[in-house]
Design a binder for these strands. Structure first.
Length: 485
RNA sequence: GGGUUGGUAGCUCAAUGGUAGAGCAGUACCCUUUUAAGGUAUUGGUUCUGGGUUCGAGUCCCAGCCAACCCA
């Protein structure tokens, strides 16, 4: 329910709407030919040229008979000038019904004002859409995080810095596709609704197919279907799309998130690491202005610096833990727990010994690592779908890429032994065989080529590359609880 | 799930327990090159919701809703 004064502001705009209709003007106009988005029109700007552009009115400077307005879209802003005597009384009366936020299409002559501002002198204009609600403050923009996230369109209209983050995200996603395609990878689509939610350990969202009378799950990962395509003979594939996990929401988690998975037959995890390193540097250099990324706070102070300079450091998991806590490897499981208490690390949720070590790794290595680090030779318990190392079967041939204190990308030498894979999945399912994707295991038995595989969480990658501190700042429409009425 | 902080005009923000205010936006008027235009006047409030304490609550207490941050 709107507060009374809000209704008053709305009522005034409705009155202007009625006045437009009374003057024979359609307040919600039709198609309008332009010379392109506002930025393109600005690029074509030449004094004396006739220009046509359309956009939303974002500023109005009323000088009486002279009117200056800013016409904007997501690409830019252009000043337009309008004079009562030049357009005539009838048109000026229509113009008087225009508010900030309305969409206008204009045609006019390009000129430069005496303050040097490129401007379009309006000869004709059309009302393209009346805005019936007032826009956010033009100077402060939208500060309220709830409005930013719930009404993203207002954030995009009012906050240029938000718009820039999303434009970078769009550019990053496009560049990833191009990068992989140029290297012979093809993009494929696999089911988002799966009878068994496999490929990761996470709680799925459940739904129901009426006609088939069966439950389905939204996928938590596309992995098992992409591997079927390796079996089917596609050697270089990727999928860049949404996954769904029915878990908590936080600064780093949204129930649906975007994941890139890529598989390369006859490659291994080290080759995949080279590929990811090259790709992320390519993104930083072409979209984010270079390999040195600076994250800033609201005041513009640098809070964090990430240096992507190659080659990226590679180190074994055990060596990293050992460097963080000397003699860790020599300690017994009980001594390790005692050591954690000494270091004020809460390991109450850890059951197995490898979980204690993993907690030490997360707190003392991962969270403190800003520059890229490939963590290799991880314990096999952490990664059930990867190949065991030939020399040391207690570890697997994988990397975990850490940047910005977060895991950005895992890469595996994929397990293609169907017998070992079956054992691993059976152990993981804890005896609940209905949770095992038997068709996937059958597929492996037909033969899957050895392959390198990667996953990259696109939202976290964009956070790292743009300096966003919350995943909500890189998602157009982050998940929110409904607001009570 | 636990803790901390916040929710006041359309937006951005003020307000020792004592008459709810400002800037912008809006409205009216002045102004023929302004650009956060300027000037004069002016409208606009269930202070998130529901209880309680008090002579008196935006402010203190309790419960709830929503959000941000931290922890798990």
């Amino acid at each position: 329910m709107d507060a009374p004064s809000h209704s008053e502001l709305l009522a005034i705009r409705r009155q202007k709407l009625d006045a437009l209709v009374a003057a024979g003007v359609d307040p919600f106009g039709r198609g309008f030919e332009t010379d392109g988005p506002v930025a393109d029109v600005r690029a074509k700007f030449a004094e004396g040229a006739t220009l046509r552009l359309a956009g939303r009115i974002t500023a109005h400077r009323d000088m009486g008979k002279s009117q200056f307005l800013d016409l904007s879209d997501a690409t830019g802003r252009m000043q337009i000038f309008l004079h009562a005597k030049e357009i005539g009384d009838e048109a000026f009366h229509v113009f008087k019904q225009i508010d900030l936020g309305d969409f206008l299409g204009v045609e006019g002559e390009a000129f430069i004002t005496k303050t040097g501002e490129p401007t379009v002198r309006v000869k004709r204009f059309e009302v393209l859409a009346k805005s019936l609600r007032p826009l956010p403050d033009k100077w402060h923009g939208v500060q309220d995080t709830e409005i930013k996230y719930r009404q993203r369109y207002l954030d995009l209209i009012a906050n240029p810095e938000s718009r820039e983050v999303f434009q970078k995200r769009i550019a990053i996603v496009r560049a990833i596709r191009r990068f992989l395609e140029e290297r012979g990878f093809i993009e494929v689509e696999t089911p988002m609704m799966q009878a068994i939610a496999g490929g990761a350990a996470a709680a799925p969202f459940q739904t129901h197919h009426n006609a088939l009378g069966m439950d389905l799950f939204l996928r938590i990962a596309p992995e098992l279907y992409l591997k079927r395509l390796l079996v089917g003979g596609f050697p270089k594939i990727f999928e860049l799309n949404r996954n769904f996990r029915n878990e908590g929401i936080s600064r780093r988690h949204n129930p649906e998130f975007t994941m890139l998975e890529a598989y390369w037959a006859f490659a291994d995890f080290e080759k995949m690491a080279d590929l990811v390193e090259e790709m992320v540097c390519h993104l930083a250099e072409t979209i984010c202005g270079g390999l040195l990324l600076e994250h800033r706070d609201a005041e513009g102070n640098v809070t964090k610096t990430i240096n992507l300079a190659r080659p990226w450091r590679r180190a074994r998991y055990a060596d990293l833990v050992e460097a963080a806590v000397p003699s860790w490897a020599a300690l017994s499981p009980d001594a390790r727990r005692a050591k954690c208490a000494e270091l004020h690390l809460d390991i109450s949720h850890c059951v197995a010994d490898y979980e204690v070590t993993q907690h030490v790794f997360e707190k003392l290595v991962e969270e403190k690592t800003m520059d890229p680090l490939y963590v290799t030779h991880c314990p096999k318990e952490l990664v059930p779908l990867a190949k065991q190392n030939a020399a040391d079967p207690s570890v697997v041939d994988v990397y975990e890429l850490v940047i910005n204190g977060q895991e950005i990308s895992p890469g595996y030498s994929e397990l293609n032994d169907p017998i070992v894979q079956r054992q691993r999945l059976e152990e993981q399912s804890g005896g609940e065989t209905q949770k095992i994707d038997h068709d996937f295991l059958d597929a492996l038995e037909y033969g899957m080529p050895p392959a390198g595989g990667i996953g990259i969480g696109i939202d976290r990658l964009v956070m790292m590359l743009t300096g966003a501190e919350s995943i909500r700042d890189v998602l157009f429409f982050p998940h929110m609880k409904p607001r009570a009425d």
